[in-house]
Design a protein around this nucleic acid. Sequence first.
DNA 1: GAGCTATGTAGAC
DNA 2: TCTACCTAGCTCT
Length: 287
Amino acid sequence: MPEGHSVHRLARGLHRSFAGTEVRTSSPQGRFSSGAEILDATLLERAGAWGKHLFMEFERDEVVHVHLGLYGTFVKARPPVPEPRGALRLRLENDEWYADLRGPTACDLVGPDGRDAIIARLGPDPLRRDADPAKARRRITGSRAPIGTLLMDQSVIAGIGNIYRAELLYRHGVSPFREGREVEPEVVDAMWDDLVVLMKDGVRRGRIVTVDPDDRGALADLDTDRPASDDPGLDGGEDTPTLRRRRRETGVYVYRRSGRTCLRCGSIVADQEWGGRRLFWCPGCQI
DNA sequence: GAGCTATGTAGAC
DNA sequence: TCTACCTAGCTCT
């Protein structure tokens, strides 16, 4: 599910399985046929991510840029390699692994200059060691745009999506409608530091959890009639539809919890359509 | 099984 | 501002 943490996780997985090997490439769907033909049997040197953008760098300065968009998937598995089905944009194969890319917004051969041009449009990425949070602070505290809009702008911070936006603003008590310049610089810095921790945790878990451990039981009580402590395996291991649902419900404070009770103040979590996306916030806690 | 919804962006108009 | 992308999890029947 493509917010920045999942793209980084994906890039690491592809790097581990394909870097240093000659990769067979194909585009059964046909929409990346020319690229797949050029890349076939070429050495993959590295895979990496910047925000929600994935880059696979091959020998001879060939670079593939992938953006999963809203519902793209890139799934890696061990052979036997199944017959292609559906709209399979790109398949990577070596002797140990194969990986199938479906439904991306972007899958292009861009070269080093194209990669650099894409990165130049992006703001600092909290998951990268070379990130400069001062750039994000300057963009936010110098803007009249609402902080809820700024956080989703990938040129301000790369990798945040709708969930991290909603949860980060909640955790810091900031209304999404407050102008960027009205948010104190020390609050922006605290939000950045928090985001680094949350997104690293997201990479490790493979899912977004923003609720502090002490709050999880209380939130589960609000969302269901049963205490969370009755549910071993809530934090991993066992995987059933019920557990998946309860993990999602207890993993976030406000995202897709509209109409439910805020854990901290008892207000009803609100939502509205805003800039083409659904916005979730607590009118009591976030000012 | 059908229908709905969504963690997003690029490009056309 | 609208549409394409055309997946996959969830809810309802």
